[in-house]
């Protein structure tokens, strides 16, 4: 098992990150193309909106999984975490743009929705929290902010939770899928909690 993980880590080290940005963004463009050509059914706007929202949650969860995977299984995907976070942000942003430009369309209604509809307020809050994280996901910002960078990026935990709650709140009737996302996120957050250290190292 350990040998397998070591081999996996070794292989992962050799994978360049930049092509993965393109690879992970392809589904978004693919769904947009499907929407244009009838591949998303007769109501492509909602379908595209939902697909992008789900992809956003999936990449957020993937980003959240990096630390527990390393800590508990020794799988090291740390070098991909920035990529996962930025791709997630790309999907959150395109999800929001589809909602603004294709779905609601009417500016006054957009404002009313953001203020009056709790599930949209929650979703927007998640987006706003991710904004500074996306803007500081670069080496320059990491250097510049120093220890504050780590503090700032803990906002991701809140943002991801808000994303899942947004999903839970928007479905009609009792549906299991959004709760599965929420459960995955809560599990990944719980795995981060370290038991208080008794022994002091070194």
């Amino acid at each position: 098992m350990t040998a397998l993980i070591d081999r996996f880590n070794g292989a992962a080290r050799r994978v360049p990150t930049w092509p993965l940005y393109i690879l992970c963004a392809i589904p978004g463009f693919w769904f947009f193309y499907l929407g244009l050509t009838g591949g998303l059914g007769v109501e492509p706007i909602k379908a595209l909106e939902h697909k992008l929202g789900e992809l956003a949650l999936q990449f957020l969860i993937a980003g959240l999984a990096v630390t527990p995977l390393r800590r508990h299984l020794g799988v090291n995907l740390l070098k991909f975490r920035r990529m996962l976070g930025l791709v997630a942000f790309f999907y959150v942003l395109t999800h929001l743009l589809v909602w603004l430009l294709l779905d609601v369309q009417i500016v006054s209604q957009i404002w009313a929705d953001i203020l009056k509809r709790p599930y949209i307020t929650v979703g927007m809050a998640g987006f706003v929290l991710l904004l500074p994280l996306a803007l500081t996901s670069n080496n320059w910002s990491v250097r510049k902010l120093g220890p504050k960078w780590r503090q700032l990026h803990k906002l991701a935990y809140v943002a991801v939770l808000l994303g899942a709650i947004h999903f839970v709140m928007l479905v009609k009737g009792f549906q299991i899928e959004p709760y599965l996302y929420l459960a995955a996120i809560l599990t990944l957050l719980a795995l981060r909690i370290r038991p208080a250290r008794r022994k002091v190292a070194i």
Binding site: E43, L102, D113, K116, Y119
Partner: peptide
């Protein structure tokens, strides 16, 4: 009278594609 989670003031006719107007 809005649905608590969305406005009922407008609607989208099915069949208008990706750029259908409300």
């Amino acid at each position: 009278v809005d649905h608590p989670r969305w406005s009922q003031a407008t609607e989208r006719r099915i069949g208008g594609g990706l750029f259908a107007r409300r």
